[in-house]
């Protein structure tokens, strides 16, 4: 049993604060994804949990132990690195069994657990090979197997799929999700790929500039982003934003105006209207727009249109009959709209 508690973790590198008092509670057995652009502090937070970095302030708790001042080896964690960090001078079996040897597990037990780990990751026929003789995907699986055989209650993963090619990544993503269901370790998974985060996480913590911007289940974050940043980071394409102001019971901006069914602030208040591409329908009256590009993507078409000077992405049926430069109208349900403060970018309560 190991829940993880991070309490006001602060980490400063030189003059930049990589973590600004981050607090995060992860439930036992949960798959928590840390998501954010590079430099947001997600890897630093993971390394603070691993003990590879020391927090400058704050506490880290694993299970019922305060591990803030403990070395990585005493924290009861296992980690998968972005570069896999598979030891080149050891065979696959040597790599998978390395941690067990360090823990002085009896030799027959090591052999058995290495075997089990190799079976779980489909590496049995490679046990005697050296990493140089393996493909990238196989090396990645060695790294996962090496972490899993430790039977540590906490599994930390730092962008484990980012060095795989697209097709392999899809496969490995499903494999990792299945593995998590089987072994049920408390997992922290760092990624900058929002698709990975959405598809794998029980919950996602979206990070930005050393702080957590929003924590929630994937669909909750997708549907109700807490800020313009989260809405723009999650989803492909990202959420559309139209800038405008409250005018006479409606909302108006450059080249458009929409009615408001309930007040969103006093007259003249500047807001952002956030709406996802799949919630916009082309035609039938509404906001006037001009088509810029039409991209057929197989299952649907992505239409980029301009409202005033703002580009808006619309997910349309693949047989949509619009052409560049054509004048169209865009319509969306007000209940699908997320309102944000134009200054701070934070969402208004629904």
């Amino acid at each position: 049993m190991a829940a993880i508690g991070i309490d006001k973790a602060t980490k400063i590198f030189g003059r930049t604060a990589a973590l600004k008092g981050v607090s995060l509670d992860i439930r036992d057995g949960e798959f928590m994804v840390l998501l954010g652009p590079s430099g947001c502090g997600k890897t630093t937070l993971l390394r603070c949990v691993a003990g590879l970095e020391q927090v400058d302030a704050g506490r880290v708790r694993i299970g019922d132990r305060d591990v803030t001042d403990l070395a990585p080896r005493d924290r009861n964690i296992a980690m998968v690195f972005q570069s896999y960090a598979v030891f080149p001078h050891m065979t696959v079996a040597g790599n998978i069994g390395f941690g067990l040897r360090m823990r002085r597990v009896p030799r027959p037990d090591i052999q058995q657990r290495v075997r089990q780990g190799a079976e779980l990751l489909g590496l049995v026929s490679f046990l005697d090979r050296y990493p140089a003789q393996l493909s990238g995907g196989q090396r990645q699986r060695v790294a996962v197997a090496r972490a899993l055989v430790m039977d540590a209650p906490v599994l930390l993963m730092d962008e484990p799929l980012s060095n795989l090619d697209a097709l392999l990544r899809l496969q490995a993503r499903a494999d990792l999700k299945r593995l998590h269901k089987e072994v049920k370790r408390t997992t922290i998974y760092v990624t900058h790929d929002q698709v990975e985060a959405m598809s794998m996480g029980d919950r996602i913590a979206v990070m930005r500039d050393g702080a957590i911007e929003q924590i929630g289940a994937p669909m909750e974050i997708y549907d109700n982003p807490a800020s313009q940043f989260v809405g723009g980071f999650i989803g492909s394409p990202p959420m559309n934003f139209l800038r405008g102001a409250v005018r006479d019971g409606g909302f108006a901006g450059d080249g458009f105006s929409v009615p408001l069914s309930r007040p969103r602030g006093e007259q003249g208040r500047e807001l952002l209207l956030g709406v996802r591409a799949e919630h916009i329908v082309i035609g039938g009256g509404g906001i006037p727009a001009k088509v810029l590009v039409v991209e057929p993507l197989g299952s649907h078409a992505l239409v980029t249109a301009v409202v005033g000077k703002t580009a808006v992405k619309v997910q349309a049926p693949v047989d949509v009959a619009v052409k560049p430069d054509q004048a169209i109208s865009l319509r969306f349900d007000e209940s699908r709209v997320r309102w944000m403060d134009a200054g701070s970018g934070t969402a208004l309560p629904n």
Partner: peptide, 18 residues
């Protein structure tokens, strides 16, 4: 020699020196 290799060893039960 990648630093991550040494860090991996540390998470697998080695001291810094080990």
């Amino acid at each position: 020699v990648s630093h991550e290799l040494e860090e991996a060893a540390q998470t697998l039960g080695c001291t810094r020196w080990g």
